[in-house]
Design a protein around this nucleic acid. Structure first.
Length: 546
RNA sequence: GCGCCUCUAGCUCAAUGGCAGAGCAACGGACUCUUAAUCCGCAGGUUCCGGGUUCGAAUCCCGGGGGGCGCACCA
């Protein structure tokens, strides 16, 4: 905010700040300044204590010829400037804005900084020029004067989008804009293509996702969302490591697709002359790590499912899976609550999120309800696994779904849940007690062998996490696989094949283990309050252009 | 995969059956404190592609392509 000019500190270098800063170790976000006397003006060849090692001009390499036009050697008639190989930046925009927030309009510091970034706006005023320079931290104005700035004419002809490095003293203009008063500058890269309207940016959805680099520069919100994603993943990783989990990497190329019910991508290995599948889940390999003695493991990685695209589905997406030995489902209720609410507090400052204009309260504890309870609650139908199968079949048919011959009571009950209850859920809520028939990798419920110890966490109306006490009995696992294989040969192309390698691993002994999967993309969508999964993926899948 | 909507200058958008336009960007010029600077000038088009109807098509019809949304599938 500009404030009335005062003369009290006009022209006086901020020595206190300067000395404390120069004593700091060089790190991102710090403002390293040089004494103005050493660098200002055209004769600043030596004595730039905190700036360029080379001394001459903007701290660019090679120093000679920086910014000088040369004729291109590629046969084109156009002149191209010689572009430097590196640039010594001493300050980022945000750090400058923070440090000199109290500088009065019209005041000049004696502090020399070198900044670098992209020219977002340029106002050529004849003998003066103003440019808005943006770097990854923020923006700061460059103030160029014909009487001071080296190669002023070229500066005033910069294109929007050009990358430049600039060196000069920090000032606040008479109109109140904090600026670097440019003595030297260097073109770091040309923007040969314009990137969007300077006021409206780029809004065309197709352009935004096909040329994401343009979107990221033009739209601050796009950068924020991807930054939030990065922070969320980093937080989760740290959080799990703090709890004793070890991050591992398991294969993405699978001889058999497993660990989920989904259609896989198929690829081919030439030397082995064998088809391989891009993984649909890391689950089976992670449990084999537990068999091998890794008692707490997790993996954050890409999985691939060959299914339709939608605002909530991308063919490749990021999954967090973790497995904890000696634990069961009861441990995971708490873990999911703590991870998700902790993440919200850390990144969004509160357990209360707004998603799509609706409130989502993440403070634990979350409601827990069984699948059958929820069907009864939302449909008014008095059903359970005790309901005669014919009756269940009839009720499913009434929802408009055609019950398949192979569907047993469990699958029929799940259908009723998906039609009557799930669309009405907002959450957070843990839906528990999924039937064995639809949970081929989960351990049977200790109170009812027709059910499993499994939950899905629903947040903002979407399945965000899926967890269960793991099935450890190799004989039961074989029977479940065989039931899946039967479904597959009956036409269910998402059903799992029998995985003999996995069965052999179970025969070596999987301790009691709890396992959890969280869809990272959807979690970030919640935190960022965006409706389309493409917003949280840097380069979402699109149909190839032409 | 199906349904609905959409595609015009580099960007953002007008023109609804009658001469394809504006703002910004680009290009040339003026300007010593600008804030989407302002002002003067100058250029810029396979109206997504192909066919049809019509005296005349960006506009209406058919087919194709890209994108969006919904459904289906799924996380």
């Amino acid at each position: 905010m500009p404030r009335p000019s005062t003369t009290s500190n006009r022209g006086s270098p901020c020595t206190g700040c300067a000395s404390s800063t120069t004593a700091m170790p060089r790190r991102q976000g710090a403002v390293a300044v040089a004494d103005a006397a050493g660098v200002r003006g055209g004769s600043a060849d030596a004595g730039a204590s905190g700036g360029s090692a080379a001394g001459a001009g903007p701290a660019a390499d090679p120093p000679a010829g920086a910014g000088e036009p040369v004729t291109a050697t590629d046969g084109s008639a156009r002149e191209r400037p010689a572009l430097p190989y590196r640039f010594d930046r001493t300050a980022e925009a945000a750090a400058i804005q923070a440090r000199y927030a109290d500088l009065a309009p019209g005041d000049e510091t004696g502090d020399v900084v070198s900044v670098a970034g992209r020219v977002m706006l340029l106002r050529d005023q004849g003998k003066l020029a103003f440019a808005q320079l943006r770097d990854s931290s923020g923006a700061v104005q460059l103030f160029a004067l014909a009487s001071l700035t080296e190669d002023f004419d070229a500066f005033s002809r910069l294109s929007l989008g050009d990358w430049v490095g600039a060196t000069g003293v920090v000032v606040r203009t008479r109109r109140g804009e904090l600026s670097v008063k440019v003595s030297h500058w260097v073109l770091l890269a040309e923007a040969r293509r314009a990137f969007g309207d300077k006021w409206r940016g780029v809004t065309d959805v197709e352009t935004r996702f096909r040329q994401r680099e343009v979107d990221l520069w033009a739209n601050e919100r796009s950068r924020e969302v991807l930054l939030l994603r990065s922070r969320a993943i980093s937080w989760l990783r740290r959080s799990l490591e703090d709890r004793g989990f070890v991050e591992v990497e398991t294969p993405m190329l699978h001889p058999l697709p497993g660990g989920a019910t989904a259609r896989p991508f198929v690829t081919h290995h030439n030397a082995l002359d064998t088809d391989l599948y891009l993984r649909i889940a890391p689950e089976l390999y992670l449990k084999r790590m537990v068999v091998g003695g890794f008692e707490r493991v997790f993996e954050i990685g890409r999985v691939f499912r060959n299914e339709g695209l939608s605002p909530r589905h991308n063919p490749e997406f990021t999954m967090l899976e973790l497995y904890q030995a000696y634990a069961d489902l009861t441990d995971l209720f708490v873990l999911v609550e703590e991870l998700v609410s902790g993440l919200a507090v850390d990144l969004c400052g509160s357990t209360t999120l707004s998603y799509g204009g609706r409130i989502l309260e993440l403070a634990p504890p979350w409601r827990r309800a069984t699948l059958a309870e929820l069907v009864r609650e939302h449909s008014g139908l008095d059903v359970s696994l005790d309901t005669p199968e014919g009756e269940l079949r009839r009720l499913v048919a009434e929802t408009g779904v055609d019950p398949q011959p192979g569907w047993g009571p469990g699958k029929l009950l799940l259908e009723l849940y998906e039609k009557h209850a799930e669309p009405a859920l907002w959450g957070p809520i843990f839906v528990t007690d999924f039937p064995v028939e639809v949970s081929p990798l989960a351990r049977r419920h200790r109170d009812d062998p027709r059910l499993t110890e499994r939950f899905e966490a629903i947040l903002a109306g979407r399945e965000l996490a899926n967890a269960f006490t793991e099935l450890t009995d190799p004989d039961d696992q074989r029977r479940r696989f065989e039931a899946q294989a039967a479904a597959k040969s009956a036409g269910d192309d998402e059903a799992m094949p029998v995985d003999e390698e996995y069965l052999r691993a179970l025969e070596h002994g999987l301790p009691p283990t709890a396992g959890l999967g969280i869809g990272i993309d959807r979690l970030v969508m919640l935190l960022a309050d965006v409706a389309n999964i493409r917003e949280v993926i840097a380069f979402p899948t699109l149909r190839p252009d032409r």
